[in-house]
Computed example of a mutant assay.
Amino acid sequence: MSDIIPQNLASLHSAEEQMREKARSMIAADPRLQLHLAVTEAAMDLADTLRKFDTNDENLKVAQILGMRTFNAFAASIKLTLSGYHQNSALILRDVMETVFLLDLFAGDPTLIERWRFADKKARMKDFSPVKVREALDARDGFTSKKRFGMYELFSELAGHPNMKSSWMMRPQKDGDAVIGPFMEATALEAVISEMGRLAIQVGEKIDRFFPSNWDQGMPSRVAFAQQKKNWINTFYPTAARGP
């Protein structure tokens, strides 16, 4: 049985587990990273809870499936960054970003879900490609700064597409050489987990809008996310939390 996995891959896994233990120590010493992970777990729990709602509404099933997609993506992203693969973790977070933008669009106009469900490839690219979704959201919200595009472009350049900037996330030190395989470094770990927390806030907010208002079984998860969201905002955006 010991020959099933090549020795080099077994050694690589051992190194990944060492990175995970190092990451655990770094997170244990940083309450802010713990809070990002806590709100991510709360958003994942919302997605898991919503999927349990028994429904024949095909449009709601779409929201459930998209929520499940974010659950899986967050789980994979966490595993990768704790194992020392920060660039690959960030690439998966770009998928979370695309998914939450779609959830946001559908939450604002549920009639679009049915159009999306039955759209062929040409119609889907015309109306629901990532750029079309971002443009529709910006137009709906009256945003002109294109912050959604800026964040998408950042994820694409640093993690999504092979280019010179993407090598930055393969360097344990900013001005050092790129390395092969996993590594653990505070700046890289914090960058990924902090973006994860920001996306988790958005994911939780959008998934929450699809919960049936009279479904009591969903309330504990909704309340737990709301509390973690409040803690997160009070910590990272205290001025916004206090209001005008």
Rank of each mutant, 00 (worst) to 15 (best):
S145N: 15
M196L: 15
D54V: 11
L189W: 11
E135V: 05
G204A: 02
K165E: 05
N72H: 15
Q173P: 02
Q202H: 09
L91T: 07
Y237A: 09
A224S: 03
D216C: 05
A119E: 00
D3H: 10
K230Q: 04
L199D: 01
L66P: 05
D138G: 07
L35E: 00
E205S: 04
R51H: 14
E135F: 08
P130V: 04
F210Y: 11
L137C: 03
M97A: 13
M170R: 15
S167P: 08
F143L: 09
H13P: 00
P172R: 11
G243A: 03
V192C: 00
T187K: 11
A178T: 15
I201C: 03
L9H: 14
M164G: 09
I207S: 04
D127M: 08
S14Y: 05
D30G: 07
S25A: 15
G160D: 05
T81F: 09
K61T: 05
A43N: 03
G218N: 04
F128V: 02
D109Q: 15
S213M: 05
S156V: 03
I92R: 05
E190P: 02
N56H: 13
A76V: 08
S221E: 00
D30S: 06
D216T: 12
A42S: 07
F143D: 12
L105C: 03
V96Q: 01
D175A: 13
R94G: 10
V223N: 07
E114N: 08
E157T: 12
W232Y: 15
E16V: 11
K126T: 15
K206A: 14
A136W: 03
V39K: 02
E114P: 01
S221D: 01
K132T: 09
D54R: 06
I4P: 06
Q173M: 07
I27A: 01
Q173D: 11
Q87E: 06
L82E: 00
S83H: 06
G142Y: 06
V62P: 00
L33I: 03
A10H: 06
F236P: 01
V96N: 00
Q34T: 09
E153Y: 15
A15R: 15
R222K: 14
K79N: 14
E58A: 12
T187G: 12
Q202R: 13
S194W: 06
M164A: 15
R115E: 08
G181Y: 13
G197C: 05
N163Q: 04
P172K: 13
N56R: 13
K61V: 02
D216R: 12
A90I: 07
W168R: 12
S167R: 13
W168V: 07
P244Y: 07
A178F: 06
T40C: 10
S11T: 09
D208R: 15
L80D: 00
Q173V: 11
I113Q: 06
A188W: 10
E135Y: 07
I78C: 09
V131P: 05
D208G: 15
K79F: 12
M44E: 00
K146Q: 14
R242F: 08
M151Y: 14
A73D: 14
I193Y: 03
P212C: 05
P110W: 08
A136Y: 01
H161C: 01
A226H: 01
M151L: 14
Y152N: 00
E185S: 13
L9C: 11
